[in-house]
Design a protein around this nucleic acid. Structure first.
Lengths: 204, 204
DNA sequence: GTCTATAGGCCGATAGAC
DNA sequence: GTCTATCGGCCTATAGAC
């Protein structure tokens, strides 16, 4: 028998994390497949095979649940982003993150929610700025390593172009419109290769 | 008194277009301010100061209403886009359309809906492709007028970069994050000026 | 074309037993 | 921590009077 004080063992670790995790996983799946409007305590319960009241036990309000879900997703995303930024070819790796179809589908829902959901808006803005700064740092580094003028090619602008293009391609893909994608991807990857592939030639 | 056959005057023009218009206008405003999930027949009725049942008179189902609203918005958008494409400096004008804060807020909601709303998805995909083709045509024209290689700078890729950047800037703006925007905008407008404004001195 | 009335459903959230 | 029971609210949609 443990000699630790009961309070320490019980505080909030007494919670059945399996249920909490199942609730968040179910919420994420519903949001991904049917949009944020479809996420309700009852739908979550059905998905996770538990009672809807349990959702309210773990999350006092639905707003609280959405915030918790966002933090969950955010954490995974930044772990991935930081891994990409630390790779041998950070621009290629970051571009791969941009192009991944799974992340942004949720992001899109959260951004749509943010318009009219104050608490979420602040969190998302913070995450967006942090993401941007990771891109800017790696792009700036790649540019200076290749002797490219940052006045002519501001890293911030390139970061926005890269991220924006990625999101747009994914939005198209979701809609079922993939015409011309290969051409666009080839163009962007050609620019990245110039910076990372080792050929330090001037652009344009 | 008109001599036209009654049927022609009555067919479906007998409808009180004022109510129909008011319903769509109210729906648009709610969608803009509170997201698609907030658009209900009752909320529309309250906003437009009429009875919720009237909404069902004009639109048999809510899906039908959303489709009608999309077509409405789409029509206005393309009128504007075509006007921009026909202007003296089409790239500048198209970029202004990209940067406009009002259009995309609705677009974002529709795109979010599209994920799980089949009928809407097809319509939005069609509109997205049409938009893209307008951009590509003007960019290709500007490039060839300036003797820029379309192999090195594929119009399709530039269209995606331009549109994507515009949407991302607006998304940021909605979130309240505008840091660095001026720099990004300056960069993009510098590229456009090279193609349209001519060199520093040349002003066509 | 607009109204009243109403059916039938899913929602968030709470109270209280165990 | 999980359950049963339940309240009050907003939703889509229809029927039928005028």
């Amino acid at each position: 028998m443990s000699t630790r004080p009961i309070a320490a063992r019980v505080s909030n670790a007494d919670r059945n994390l399996k249920s909490r995790t199942a609730i968040l996983a179910a919420a994420q799946q519903i949001m991904r497949e049917e949009g944020y409007a479809a996420v309700s305590s009852r739908r979550i319960a059905a998905q996770a095979e538990l009672k809807s009241q349990l959702v309210h036990y773990y999350f006092k309000t639905m707003d609280e649940l959405f915030l918790a879900l966002f933090h969950d997703v955010e954490e995974q995303f930044f772990a991935r982003l930081d891994r990409a930024a630390a790779s041998d070819r950070p621009l290629s790796a970051l571009w791969a993150v941009c192009r991944d179809v799974h992340g942004p589908r949720l992001t899109k829902e959260f951004v749509a929610m943010a318009t009219h959901h104050d608490a979420l808006r602040g969190e998302i803005a913070r995450a967006a700025e942090r993401t941007r700064s990771v891109f800017v740092a790696r792009i700036a580094h790649a540019l200076s390593a290749n002797g490219v003028s940052q006045d002519a090619w501001p890293p911030l602008a390139l970061a926005v172009l890269m991220d924006g293009a990625g999101r747009l391609l994914i939005a198209d893909h979701t809609l079922g419109a993939t015409a011309g994608h290969a051409e666009v991807i080839a163009f962007i990857e050609r620019q990245i290769a110039r910076l990372e592939g080792g050929a330090p030639d001037e652009r344009r």
